[in-house]
Amino acid sequence: MATDFPYRTALVTGASRGIGAAICRRLTGLGMTVYGVARSREALDDVFQELGVVPVVADVRDPDAIVAGLAGAEIDVLVNNAGMVATVKPLYEQSAEEIAETIAVNLTAPMLLMRALLGGMVGRRRGHVVNITTTAARGVLAGTSAYGGAKAGLSHACRSLRYDLAGSNVRITDLAPGRVETEIYLRAFGGDRGKLHDTMYGNVRALQPQDIAETIAAVLSLPQHVDVTEIEISPTDQAVGGHVFKSVQG
C-alpha cells in the first residue's frame, strides 16, 4: 500500500459473498481494516477466516444496529454494496411487499447508512463513499421498475450529495455495473441456481465480482484532489442497460 494512501478502515455491506466478499478481499489487500455487514454470523465465517474481516451482524435496513456493531470504530470508506431483486416482472404483477422491500434495501438503507457515517467523515476531513448502483438505473431493463427506480434514486442522491460534500475532502462515487455473475437474481429465479446460471450467465462473458473490486480499489487509490464521480462498467459484449448480448464466435 502506498504511504500516502489516506484510508485505514472500511465498511462493506453485503460482505458475505459475491461482490461484497471480493471487495473485502481487495480492500484487506490494501492493508485496510474491513468491517463486513451480513445478517448472520455464519454467513460471514468465510471472509472472517480468510481475510480477518470484522463481522458486523445486522440487517442492512437497521443502521443503528450496524453503527452499534462498529463499537466506536471510525470508518473512512463506506461501500454500499448490499442489494436485492425481489422478482423480475411488471410492476403491476409485483406484490406491495416486494416493491417496499426492494426500495428499502436498495435506496432507504444506503441513504440512512450514509447519514449515520458521513458526519464523522466530514469532521475528520477524510472519507469516501462508494454506492454500487446498476445500469438498470440508467437504461431500460424489462421487469425492473422497482429495482431500477430505487437504484436511480440512489444515483441521483449521489449527485446531490456532491454539493453537500464539496470542500469537505470527502469523495463519493456512483459505480453502476452491467451484468455481473452473482446471485442477486437468485430469489427471482425461485432459488434455482442452475436456471439462473443457464439463463443469465451460461452463454455470455459477464463481469465478475473481482472486476468490481478492482475498480473500487483504483478509485480509492487516486490522489485526494480527484473524485471519480460516476462509473459505468459493462461487459464488452453487452449493450449498456439492456439484456441482449452479441455472442463471440470461436
Rank of each mutant, 00 (worst) to 15 (best):
Gly127Thr: 11
Gly167Leu: 10
Val37Ala: 08
Lys151Thr: 06
His197Pro: 00
Ser16Cys: 05
Arg8Thr: 13
Val122Leu: 00
Ala142Thr: 07
Ala43Pro: 00
Ala116His: 04
Glu232Lys: 02
Val244Lys: 08
Ile19Val: 15
Met111Tyr: 13
Val67Asp: 06
Met84Ala: 11
Met84Leu: 11
Thr13Trp: 05
Ala38Tyr: 02
Ala82Met: 06
Gly69Asp: 03
Val244Asp: 07
Met84Phe: 02
Ala150Lys: 01
Ala43Asn: 12
His128Gln: 14
Phe189Lys: 05
Tyr7Ile: 11
Arg171Leu: 10
Glu101Thr: 14
Ser221His: 02
Met84Ser: 09
Gly202Ala: 14
Lys151Met: 09
Ala188Arg: 03
Arg124Leu: 08
Ser168Trp: 07
Ile233Phe: 06
Leu220Tyr: 09
Arg41Ser: 13
Glu214Arg: 15
Ala150Phe: 01
Val54Thr: 13
Phe245His: 15
Thr9His: 11
Val130Lys: 14
Gly178Ser: 09
Val219Gly: 06
Ala22Leu: 09
Gly127Ile: 10
Gly178Val: 08
Ile132His: 03
Ile132Gln: 04
Ala38Leu: 02
Pro235Gly: 11
Arg41Asp: 08
Pro235Tyr: 11
Asp62Gln: 10
Thr133Gln: 08
Lys195Met: 09
Ala137Arg: 02
His243Lys: 04
Val12Arg: 12
Leu141Gln: 13
Ala152Thr: 02
Val77Tyr: 10
His197Tyr: 15
Gly14Asp: 06
Arg138Glu: 12
Val248Ile: 13
Asn203Gly: 01
Ala157Ile: 09
Val248Gly: 01
Thr3Ile: 04
Gly149Phe: 03
Leu207Gln: 05
Pro177Met: 04
Gly139Trp: 09
Thr33Ile: 13
Arg41Gln: 13
Gly36Glu: 09
Gly149Ala: 04
Pro55Met: 10
Lys195Asp: 01
Thr13Gln: 05
Lys246Ser: 11
His128Asn: 13
Glu50Phe: 00
Gly69Trp: 10
Ser16Gln: 04
Thr215His: 02
Thr87Ser: 15
Val37Phe: 07
Ile75Thr: 08
Lys151His: 05
Gly29Glu: 09
Glu230Met: 02
Leu141His: 01
Tyr185Asp: 08
Val79Phe: 08
Glu214Met: 11
Leu107Val: 06
Ala71Arg: 15
Gln210His: 14
Glu97Ser: 12
Ile103Pro: 00
Glu232Ile: 15
Thr215Gln: 13
Gln49Arg: 15
Val12Gly: 13
Val204Met: 00
Ala213His: 03
Val228His: 09
Ile19Ala: 02
Ala73Tyr: 06
Arg138His: 13
Thr229Gly: 12
Met1Thr: 09
Asp211Leu: 01
Asp237Leu: 03
Thr182Arg: 08
Ser155Ala: 15
Ser145Asp: 03
Thr144Gln: 14
Glu232Thr: 15
Tyr7Leu: 09
